[in-house]
């Protein structure tokens, strides 16, 4: 079985969850290829400045150092990890470029897994035999788009990760798996991020295995089943942080299955929903 991991910005692609996904699939005997977009230095600098402004240099050094302390082991990028294992790594500027599309077709993947990639052109979606999987840091179908962890806290809804088939819409493809994230009192958004990453890795590996084994099940979602959210305004973000810090965030709502019933969705997906256990 052949799987392509799609990512971007290879110089700073050091998140451990990506290596975990790659490692587990590699250990399963899957033939991996890692394809990067936005791989030029100029692209990475531009994206870094657009994201972090003048702090980009400090962020870069921190990302390369791992923990950010002087004595820490340098963080390993997915590209470096793959290189050490003779896994093919292809570097491209844009996912839709002819050379990139040609490289993807040469890889002839059964499955594509998004590991923090750009918006995927339709031409890329048509390449893998089984489809493309993505991990979304929110519980679909209700929360689509950006900053959905923050928006879930804002609305006192459960936090979680959803893995879904990618279609041309934004987070609108059929849901393959979900996992809720327990929140302890006093945890911050920064504390919750690694929890989401670990859940994403677990769910992607699990969904990937099921997809490759042809045992995947999925819940279709309709456009009206959820809302698309955008990056949160700093003042709302501050309110969310304060809500978490004070323990005022109360997920008193329903489980994923109950939410699905409210939305009239099926319950056929291998959902790993659990009730909130702390906080």
């Amino acid at each position: 079985m052949r799987v392509v991991l799609l990512s971007r910005y290879p110089r700073v692609d050091t998140a451990a969850w990506k290596r975990q996904v790659a490692s587990e699939l590699h250990d399963d005997g899957v033939q991996l290829t890692v394809v990067y977009s936005r791989s030029s230095l100029a692209d990475q600098v531009r994206a870094g400045v657009a994201e972090f402004g003048p702090n980009v240099a400090a962020r870069y050094i921190k990302a390369r150092r791992g923990s950010g302390t002087a004595n820490a082991e340098p963080a390993t990028s997915l590209a470096a990890w793959a290189g050490e294992r003779d896994i093919e790594v292809a570097l491209h500027d844009r996912l839709g470029d002819p050379q990139c599309l040609a490289a993807l077709r040469r890889a002839d993947p059964d499955l594509v897994i998004l590991a923090g990639a750009d918006i995927i052109p339709r031409a890329v979606l048509e390449i893998p035999r089984l489809g493309t999987l993505n991990a979304h840091y929110g519980l679909l179908p209700r929360y689509r788009g950006m900053n959905v962890t923050q928006w879930s806290v804002y609305h006192d809804d459960p936090l979680g990760v959803s893995v879904h088939w990618v279609d041309p819409g934004i987070d609108t493809g059929a849901i393959v798996g979900r996992e809720t994230i327990p929140v302890a009192a006093g945890e911050t958004l920064a504390d919750l991020r690694p929890k989401h990453q670990q859940a994403a890795a677990r769910q992607l590996v699990e969904a990937g295995r099921r997809a490759l084994g042809d045992t995947v099940d999925a819940i279709e979602q309709g456009p009206e089943d959820g809302r698309q959210y955008y990056r949160m305004h700093p003042e709302l973000l501050g309110a969310v942080e304060r809500k978490l810090a004070s323990g005022a965030y109360r997920w008193t709502g329903a489980s994923c299955e109950e939410l699905d019933m409210q939305l009239g969705l099926g319950s056929g997906a291998a959902s790993a929903a659990r009730p909130r256990t702390a906080g």
Binding site: Y154, H155, R227, Y229, Y230, H233, E235, L236
Partner: peptide, 11 residues
């Protein structure tokens, strides 16, 4: 009461 409009309005 849709907070997405609050977000966009403030921005």
């Amino acid at each position: 009461g849709d907070a997405r409009f609050l977000n966009a309005g403030c921005k």
